[in-house]
Design a protein around this nucleic acid. Structure first.
Length: 241
DNA sequence: CGCCAGGCCGTGT
DNA sequence: ACACGGCATGGC
């Protein structure tokens, strides 16, 4: 029994998250998220992707793009019924159309339709305004803050929850805020907000990538890039990912 | 056919 | 505070 001859330092959860991040980054490389042409498109995509496969979202975005409607004023002027029909492919169209419209109204009334200006608002303020809109919950709010407004908001999703649980990094009952703090703790040494935002950006994108590849409800851990480094970096004992 | 996808809300315990 | 069903559509 092998008894490791060299002692492997016991890492705390923040260090383990950081190791997990580095492992994913090495395995997958830069993700270049969010896949969109503009902040407005990012916002629309963030709303449309709720509970929906991204391929379906692309069809909706394509509908809008073909009609040259991925512009703020044009999109806001679009009658709600037409918006519904154009975003139909991504599902939940009633709610999503209403949510999108409410969001465009917020940006119009509070920031003169300038996403730029919205992006300069302090993160907690912008987050509260987003969460006040029916249909925008914590994950969508943080996705908009991070990928459209370049704010250092860590996005927590089901994949991160699964990874954290399976690696013993969070209790089973951990809620959104707990998981967000946990993920952020990996970058506690980063004081620069812009640099922190870059880490948040990459981290969430990597989690989604590995999630799609291996962490579905029926996990495929056989070729998971986290598997090779589990023993050495994460906890020193075999754990499924 | 059944399950799932880059969630959120309202309701019932 | 948490669990659960509904919301809609399309890919596999």
């Amino acid at each position: 029994m092998p008894a490791r001859t060299t002692a492997i330092p016991q890492l705390n959860s923040a260090q383990r998250l950081r190791a997990l991040y580095e492992t994913l980054a090495a395995a997958y490389g830069p993700q270049h998220w969010w896949p969109s042409q503009s902040p407005l498109e990012t916002i629309v995509g963030a709303c449309l992707t709720q509970g929906t496969a991204w391929t379906a979202v692309e069809r909706s975005l394509s509908n809008l793009r073909q009609r040259n409607l991925l512009r703020f004023d044009a999109l806001r002027a679009l009658p709600i019924a037409e918006l519904r029909s154009l975003i139909r492919p991504s599902g939940f169209m009633q709610r999503k159309a209403a949510t999108l419209h409410a969001l465009l109204d917020l940006i119009h009334h509070e920031y003169g339709g300038s996403i730029e200006r919205f992006a300069r608002v302090p993160l907690p303020t912008a987050r509260a305004q987003l969460l006040a809109i029916s249909g925008i919950g914590p994950e969508t709010a943080d996705a908009i803050l991070l990928y459209a407004l370049n704010q250092p908001a860590m996005v927590v999703d089901e994949y991160l929850r699964r990874v954290a649980l399976r690696h013993g990094l969070a209790p089973a009952h951990a809620g959104y805020a707990t998981l967000q703090q946990l993920a952020l703790s990996a970058f506690a040494d980063e004081q620069n907000p812009a640099a922190l935002a870059d880490h948040c950006n990459e981290f969430h994108a990597l989690i989604v990538q590995i999630g799609k590849d291996h962490c579905r409800r029926t996990p495929d851990c056989a070729h998971c890039p986290l598997r090779a480094d589990l023993d050495t970096h994460l906890h020193g004992r075999p754990v499924s990912c």
